[in-house]
Amino acid sequence: MRNAWVIAKRDMGSYFNSPVFYVVTTVFLIIYSFIFFNILNFFSFQSVQAGQFQGMNVGLNLNEMVIEPSFHNMLVILLLMIPVLTMRSFADEKKGKTYTLLLSSPLHLKEIIFGKFLACITVVFLMILLSSYSVGFLLILGQPEIGPIVTGYLGILLMAGCYVGMGVFASSLTDNQIIAAVIAFGFSLFMWIIGWASQAAGAGLGEVLQYLSLIDHIERFLKGIIDTSDVVYYLSFIFFFLFLTHRVLDSQRWR
């Protein structure tokens, strides 16, 4: 565990020492803020309208009309941004030949992989944390319910973990960062939309596809419900991709 933390710390250092983190975070915050304030603006416009006509204010709810769609949009932006963060994790080590340092050190492969994952997810956590100013803004202006916000962030973090898991896996496949990013993006998007095929696939398989879909498990989190089956789904999703990474890296030594 100490070893994984040492790896993670070095990786985080290299994120913060390079422009990657700052560029990605800035772009993320700008786009997220743009979307958030547009949604907020639409909400306040509706509120004003509702104020003019008695009885229309039923159903106006900050959580449902502002926070939930903002979080949905954040997940889409993260889908686009996280591959850029994860693409370096192994691809860069292999290209820079520093991978031999890790391999010749008394480290378990799983410690290296977990360290890489930990570094990325911490950086992503920081990005999400920075974006949470928006919710603070709402807390000052109105009274949104805290519960769904907390569970929503938990869900976002778990889903981001899945993106990171797929990204680290993609990065282990190649020593080219661009290829790693494209594969990570492809995987993430595919796992997002895989549920669309459920209708065509018929009853049995359709349910499986629906269950596999990343987005299918976020809804309850955003509504304020922590369902253990969703948590288990996300955690096993992350574990599965880290396990695949392990298999890939292990088998690469034999080639």
């Binding site: 100490r2 070893n3 040492v6 790896i7 070095r10 250092g13 290299s14 020492n17 390079s18 820079g96 030949k97 520093t98 991978y99 031999t100 340092l101 890790l102 050190s105 008394p106 480290l107």
Partner: peptide, 18 residues
């Protein structure tokens, strides 16, 4: 196997730890 973005001391400390 050097990380070009690290300083000599931080690199050696990292190497020592792993």
């Amino acid at each position: 196997p050097l990380y070009p973005d690290m300083t000599v001391t931080s690199y050696l400390e990292f190497a020592a730890k792993i």
